[in-house]
């Protein structure tokens, strides 16, 4: 798993690539929480996620909960079919703010 962090017009975009599993999710979790610590807007790009498990989903949930506390903006973007399958199984597709692509996610006001 790799990730790429960039700033798009004041929104931090973290792009995850590969498998988000028990091995990699602690790193993902830490990265997302650090971003939320410094920034008010965070988009996670899941377009290149080939696999995500419950621990990866848990990292996203934790980041979502922190953003709510801080009234920060947190959205998912370009969720890959593999990741979407797991999010919908977990009924989280209705909890997270999900955009079709990164541009829409960064442009959205929240």
């Amino acid at each position: 798993m790799t990730f790429d962090v960039k700033d798009v017009n004041g929104t931090v975009v973290v792009a995850l690539t590969g498998d988000v599993d028990l091995q990699s999710s602690p790193v993902v979790r830490q990265q997302l929480l650090e971003c939320l610590d410094k920034h008010k807007r965070l988009v996670v790009d899941l377009g290149a996620v080939s696999y995500i498990d419950s621990s990866g989903v848990a990292s996203l949930v934790e980041a979502f909960q922190v953003s709510r506390k801080k009234t920060a903006y947190f959205a998912l973007a370009a969720v890959s079919p593999a990741a979407m399958r797991v999010l919908s199984l977990a009924r989280l597709d209705k909890v997270f703010t999900i955009h079709a692509d990164v541009n829409a996610a960064t442009a959205a006001q929240g």
């Binding site: 498990d53 419950s54 848990a58 949930v61 979502f64 009924r91």
Partner: peptide, 18 residues
């Protein structure tokens, strides 16, 4: 309980779902 949104505890639900 799947409506209980929090990290962890999802695994068994996912296994049973699929």
């Amino acid at each position: 309980d799947i409506n209980d949104v929090r990290p962890g505890g999802l695994g068994v639900h996912l296994i049973k779902s699929v």
